[in-house]
Design a protein around this nucleic acid. Structure first.
Lengths: 309, 309
DNA sequence: ACAAAAGTGTTAAACTTACACCCATGC
DNA sequence: GCATGGGTGTAAGTTTAACACTTTTGT
């Protein structure tokens, strides 16, 4: 970095005397909302090589989020987002990357900061500011490595429902409240929470805040962080679907891709239109999926020209 | 907050012994990229009640960013984003709001976190993580209060130019580099910097990083933060123009609004099309701007129905 | 009169939406 | 044969882009 700025002797002395540690400082943590799309992987009944379902049917894929069961206080035995503290010499983004690798063994994922949560009282251990990241990983790749890790980490099915509970519009101010019901499920474990989104407009400027009003089995304020991260994923998917590809393997069928969109958005799309919209982003490969009881599907991959810009 | 979770005696004891302060912790700061659109307010020559320009012409409006001149080390005499440290008991968003008020006397502004910068060495005083916020304020309102503050804060004209300097596309990885030339000017003071944006794609996942390669008169890594914030503003303007209204007063002419868009985007729009696109977002008021040497303009205000959702 | 901005109308092209339809496969 | 998913065509409606044109004012 070329800087015209040079340190003087006086400045060096000033900085030597300067002591940041005399001010109050927080700990910085990253919490990772790791999303993936996977099937439920039900135990297959012996004697049958597919589950009892119709042999033609595509196994249902679901939105998953990675949660760990806390082995220690606070919130012992509750589930929470994986994460950890930022070490000295580490940028928050590096922390996130490291945590993701430690927790999932995944090195290549899409990582994006989605929020900063520093409210007092959010962590009983003290002043801890959480930097929440969204990570999108390709579920098929993860499955290959799934056997290797033995922590109490599980992929929970995630479901989020929205309900408008208030809408008060005035000339230069407004209050809109939405209630989000969050449901998380892994085998017999069911967690849930209700998070209220409060959109305030004052003098035409929007301010949004979130508050947990009910919570079952989710540690810290992580119910809020989960809702926040998932909403960010939904919003970006609507605005520019390219983010969805970060959940996909190298090659995939267009139906798989469409299902991914539908799972995130929570509503279904028309196939013909979807394919036209995706046409520029993908190109055909030689690969074909056969043996599924219906017309074989072409596999596609990302179209480099339109992806990298 | 209703939590099924209750603290046990054991947990209380655990937490009492727990000492966050034994780990390394950073200081947390907020830096504010305060944008506004205003005219240059040239001194008007005595005897003329308008500047030498054509009496019909609308005074040119420009994109401005608020910078303060540092009175102390480090980067003494350089210009930097206003900001300050996060106090205990304060959420980062509250810090941002407080700083904005202290610096500009403005209480109502659009505030949005745009980035987290925690690289080691970014601040010679120690480990300081900056949370960069974008603030959009209505320049006309600010002008009314401008006389009251006496700090060395000034509204700089901001200009940002992009140049692609590398594009290397491969099958599953790519490297794209863009060079952004930043120019800031207030009266005779001219600051500048070059920031290189490096977009790396590995295994189809995008990672973006920014590096300052040249810098004149801008303190810390703030050239990077400024570029980052301005790019965020541009991107959001292209995706959903509603953010632009945060720079506007309560009522405005459609030409004023269009100019705001053009100033942010850096290119001009076709009037007829622009008006059609904005039609849903605005409604006519009774107000009319007269006495300008051309057909009087209707003033519009935000259409509450479409704004608040 | 005229320069400058305010504001409207028209057309072709592009995209979106909705629906109907055919294709290929494994059992 | 048939259920299931794979894949295409088409017509109506909507949005966008480009350009031409009219209106209204202060000096």
């Amino acid at each position: 970095m070329i800087q015209t700025y040079r340190m003087t002797e006086e400045e060096k002395q000033y900085l030597e005397k300067y002591d940041v540690t005399k001010y109050d400082r927080p700990s910085i943590a990253t919490d990772m909302a790791v999303f993936s799309i996977m099937g439920d992987e039900k135990a297959i009944e012996p004697g049958k090589n597919r589950s009892a379902e119709n042999y033609r049917k595509i196994p249902e894929q679901k939105m998953k989020i990675l949660l760990i069961q806390r082995g220690n206080y606070p919130y012992k035995d509750c589930f929470a987002l994986p994460g950890g503290f930022c070490k000295k010499g580490e940028d928050v983004h590096e922390t996130a990357k490291r945590e993701l690798y430690e927790e999932t063994n995944v090195k290549n994922a899409y990582l994006q900061p989605v929020g900063i949560f520093g409210e007092t009282g959010r962590d009983p251990r003290g002043w801890i500011v959480s930097h929440t990241f969204m990570a999108l990983i390709d579920g098929t790749k993860y499955k290959l490595r799934a056997g290797t890790d033995a922590w109490e980490a599980h992929w929970f099915n995630i479901k989020l429902e929205k309900k408008e509970i208030q809408k008060n519009l005035q000339e230069d101010s407004a209050l809109i409240m939405n209630e989000y019901s969050l449901q998380l499920q892994y085998e017999a474990i069911e967690l849930s929470a209700v998070v209220v989104e409060k959109k305030k407009f004052e003098h035409y400027h929007e301010q949004v805040s979130y508050e947990i009003t009910e919570c079952q089995g989710i540690g810290f304020d992580h119910a809020k962080l989960i809702v926040y991260a998932f909403l960010a994923l939904q919003k970006q998917t609507e605005q520019d679907g390219k983010i969805v590809f970060d959940l996909m393997p190298e090659s995939f069928t267009l139906t798989e891709l469409q299902k991914a969109f539908e799972i995130i958005l929570g509503y279904s799309l028309l196939t013909a239109n979807f394919r036209r919209k995706m046409a520029d982003y993908v190109i055909e490969t030689e690969e074909i999926v056969e043996g599924a009881g219906h017309r074989p599907a072409k596999k596609f991959k990302r179209n480099v020209e339109n992806f990298y810009r």
